[in-house]
Design a protein around this nucleic acid. Structure first.
Length: 511
RNA sequence: GGUCCGUUCGUCUAGGGGUUAGGACACCAGAUUUUCAUUCUGGUAACACGGGUUCGAUUCCCGUACGGACUACCA
């Protein structure tokens, strides 16, 4: 069997879309599974859409999620350069080959002339006006002009493009690994521009030439390329490369969570989830879009989630490490239909991955947040807190955000809990509890509990009735980890002072 | 509009000529947790529609509807 060589070929027109990450992932999984090669190629043939920083962004994004590149942009390799803008002369040579074989031709039509042609056809009732086997004979090109005229135009510096001479009547078939046989009639394909007037190739030419030169075995890309895949097949044929033509696999699209259509940045913004792997600042607008990394997603969780959007192993297992994904992945098991993006599930995956970590690893997340807040904390304490908190966090930042009361006395108190649970009875018990605690010589969760039992027993009140009030005074909220444990962690003095503060400042309602 | 691709619970999906159509997320309820979360148990919920083929179709075929992609000297 042929050595597997796959490529991820984004164009640096902005941040890498999350769908692109999934495409890269599927390529990567196949490469790793087969001990093949993963290539990164930058398709920057459109100079007008080039965005500075985008290429670096793509490389860094892949690095962050753990998709490593064997060959290509950023790492080099035997087929360098891997940036298409640097391969111009190569494409030129192959375009010439097509012209020599009479499979391509020069065209000199201006944008206005093309518009006129389309306009004319449209009014004549043609559904899809195109530059094709019929219309090309009325246009200004090397098929309609004499050799001398063509030479004169080119020598005179008239801008021209090179177009593919698509046959008028031919069935073009391709066997897609995901979709099976797809047949398109050549009359549906127009004479695509291969070389633009600025001397750059279009996607179609550059893509096919590079895939051939780089010995690509599988083209795994988004479904948006399916309509032009037959054109690429035609190119392979005209180049005489049919026997080494890669296998195609067109991936289902990622759709917006509600309604229909391709997942876009707008949808993500509206629903409040990231669309880019890393935070991206648009150099033109200055607009900043928070990335998955910055939002607190773990790379493995993201990849696991992404892998399951359009693919599944056929078992009920859902949590897969990258190694397990590599082993289980099968192109044939990729779905045909587009998948709506469910960010709830992304969060669930994140939660699962977070929980699987040790308290010690999780403590690092807390320590990081604390560092930003300029709060010092021993690692031992952080580990304890991480252990107490781990069942209730989704993101690393939650350790701090949902656990600030471990370090700071509450400044605000949940009003719902105040109005429900804060009454003179609670104040009475809490005051007594405060006094009892302040007299203790040793203090931990157990002692806190027995002391509370003693105090409530003495006052003849069920501990349950005031427990939430106690929690409120300590944390400011009505929910959270085990209260006794919280008290142990913050320590006796802090417990006394927080209760004291709450008792003295919170307005009391008659019960 | 045209071409191509698609359609199983709200969502991601398994399955496949005869099944109580399975799982996960989400949601709801109960239990446990004197709180919240977790955990456990249970529940609501799907084969787009119409024709064939067949003893039998959600599964195969054809249409229709709906959705999507493409329709540039963008990728």
């Amino acid at each position: 069997m042929r050595e597997v060589r796959v490529r991820f070929a984004p164009s640096p027109t902005g941040a890498l879309h999350i769908g692109g990450v999934r495409t890269a992932l599927y390529n990567f999984l196949l490469a790793r599974q087969t001990k093949g090669t993963m290539i990164l190629r930058i398709e920057d043939t459109d100079q007008t859409r080039y965005v500075p920083g985008a290429e670096e962004y793509i490389i860094e994004s892949l690095k962050w999620v753990g998709i490593t590149i064997d060959e290509g942009a950023g790492v080099g390799g035997p087929h360098a350069p891997y940036r298409q803008s640097e391969r111009q002369s190569i494409y030129k040579q192959y375009a010439q080959q097509l012209i020599d074989a009479d499979h391509a031709y020069y065209a000199f039509d201006t944008a206005e002339e093309l518009d006129q042609m389309r306009e004319r056809l449209k009014t004549a009732g043609v559904d899809t006006p195109q530059y094709n086997a019929i219309t090309r004979m009325q246009m200004k090109n090397s098929l309609t002009l004499s050799k001398d005229e063509v030479k004169k135009l080119i020598d005179g510096g008239t801008p021209y493009v090179i177009r593919l001479k698509v046959p008028r009547k031919e069935e073009i078939r391709l066997n897609d690994l995901i979709r099976g046989w797809v047949t398109v009639h050549s009359s549906q394909i127009d004479d695509k521009v291969l070389m633009k007037s600025d001397g750059m190739p279009t996607y179609h030419l550059a893509n096919v030439v590079d895939d051939y030169l780089m010995k690509i075995s599988h083209v795994i890309r988004g479904e948006e390329w399916l309509p032009s895949a037959p054109l690429h097949v035609l190119l392979y044929k005209y180049f005489g490369w049919e026997d080494v033509m890669p296998q195609f696999a067109h991936l289902p699209l990622l759709l917006k969570p509600d309604g229909n259509g391709k997942l876009s940045k707008r949808d993500a913004d509206q629903l409040g989830f990231p669309i880019f792997p890393l935070t991206w600042r648009d150099p033109n607008t200055g607009e900043v879009a928070v990335g998955y990394r910055e939002a607190g997603y773990l790379p493995d969780a993201l990849l696991n989630f992404l892998a399951f959007l359009g693919w599944n192993p056929g078992t009920t297992q859902e949590i897969f490490s990258l190694e397990q994904l590599t082993e289980a992945f099968q192109l044939e098991r990729i779905n045909k239909a587009g998948a709506k993006f469910d960010f709830h599930k992304a969060q669930w995956f994140n939660q699962q991955y977070l929980r699987a970590k040790s308290d010690k690893e999780l403590a690092q997340f807390l320590l990081e947040s604390l560092k930003k807040e300029n709060i010092s904390c021993s690692e031992e304490k952080a580990v304890t807190i991480a252990g107490v908190m781990k069942e209730r966090v989704t993101f690393p930042k939650d350790f701090w955000e949902h656990g600030r009361f471990f370090f700071q006395a509450p400044e605000k108190f949940d009003e719902g809990v105040v109005s429900k649970k804060w009454n003179d009875e609670a104040v009475k018990v809490l005051s007594a509890y405060r006094d009892a605690v302040s007299k203790l010589s040793a203090f931990d969760a157990n002692i806190a509990k027995t002391t509370l039992d003693e105090v409530t027993a003495a006052l003849n009140i069920g501990a349950g009735k005031i427990l939430q009030a106690l929690r409120l005074s300590i944390t400011g909220a009505g929910g959270g980890p085990d209260l006794m444990m919280i008290m142990e962690i913050i320590g006796k003095n802090e417990v006394v002072s927080r209760i004291d503060h709450a008792v003295k400042t919170l307005p009391v309602k008659k019960s």
